[in-house]
Amino acid sequence: MFTVVDGDRVERIDARPGPGGRPFAPLDRPLLGWERKPHGWCRDDACLPAARAAAIETPDGVDVAAFAELTGHVAVVDAAERALALAAAAPRLTVAEAPDFELDGVRLADFRGRKVALVFWASWCGCRYDLPAWEERHAALRDHGFTVVSVACDRSAGDARPWIEEANATHPALVDTEGVVAELYNVINVPTVVWIDEEGRIARPQDTQTATDLFRSMNGLDSQESYAALRRWVVDGDAGLDRAQVREHLRVPTAEEQRARAHARLAVWLAREGRDEAARRHVAEAAALAPHDVAIRRGLMPLTGDDPFGDAYFALRDELEKAGIPIYRPLPTRPGTSV
């Protein structure tokens, strides 16, 4: 048996190690929600033609990792732990339509007709102190057809809940324990804010915004400037970027970033299972693939016994600064201005 970790879904499949330790599953059983039929592998109305699947079907069965990649995923295999993790090979992220999601019983589509600020934060980041200020912005602007939806990038809901309760949040305050929404929006650090207009289009892509000036000496960000920009968008309809600029600044994930997310996903599952040494291997693999992804690297620090507020974080900052990799990525506030 192998375990497949795919976002918020963990599935045990009947598979055995084949060449290179890769899992091979029987041809006559469903696999990852797909079923083999005479004309190919099918799930609902989608079918993978038999001719395309033929190369991964062997006397040992079907190569599970290769099958996952044919169905639009990247796959990371840990043969020793009998586990593999998946991430989307090419998440759907365009300016035309913000990816929908459902988390904690809330769907993004529920807010169609209102402007939405998706606010990504985490308990392991100083941006946790901004949550009450985001609640204040939500309260001040909601009568103008605006909603804050905060998304905590925490691996445990228990880590985020005290900060949500302290903020007395009346806005939808969600916890993305499996990193599903962060993956959809290619969030590589927090705080990151995405603006979504009434028609469900991205009006402002991944932007480093703060709601207080607590850490202005470190990040150089002006919370009042970001609030003024938010008001202009909500009240006057001026997002500060034209559509061409939105398209230019939208960060679409690379294959390496997605493979790093699969490694991170596997690391978290292994740690939850008490397999700490194996988890550390995948933490290191994720960092090697996406060294710039602070959300992954800092978010996984507790798995290796490091303090995300301590020396390990400042060592990460020094590493990125020496490599010329920006930690914060604010966008221009007015059309025609530069970052």
Rank of each mutant, 00 (worst) to 15 (best):
A278K: 03
R298S: 13
A278E: 04
Q258R: 14
A287T: 09
F309T: 00
W233R: 02
A264M: 09
D318N: 12
E248Q: 15
L303T: 02
W233T: 02
R280F: 11
A312D: 02
E277L: 14
R280V: 11
T254R: 00
A278Y: 04
T304R: 13
D242E: 07
A260C: 12
A271G: 12
H282D: 09
F314Q: 10
R259C: 06
R275T: 05
R261H: 12
A244E: 13
D318T: 11
G274T: 07
L270S: 09
A267G: 11
D236R: 11
V246I: 12
H292T: 06
H282P: 05
A295D: 08
R280A: 15
A323S: 10
L303P: 00
A260F: 08
A288S: 08
R259I: 04
P326E: 05
A315P: 05
L316W: 04
G240H: 02
E321I: 13
A287N: 09
R243Q: 15
R232H: 12
A271V: 05
R280S: 14
L241D: 00
E319Y: 10
A284K: 05
A286N: 05
A315I: 02
Q245A: 15
R251S: 03
Q245P: 02
L300P: 01
A244C: 08
D293R: 03
A260E: 04
E277G: 15
Y227A: 14
A228L: 10
K322C: 08
Y227P: 02
A228V: 10
Q258V: 00
V294R: 06
V294P: 02
R281T: 15
I327C: 06
G299T: 04
H263M: 12
R280D: 15
P291W: 00
E225Q: 13
R261D: 07
E285M: 15
V252K: 12
D276V: 14
A278H: 01
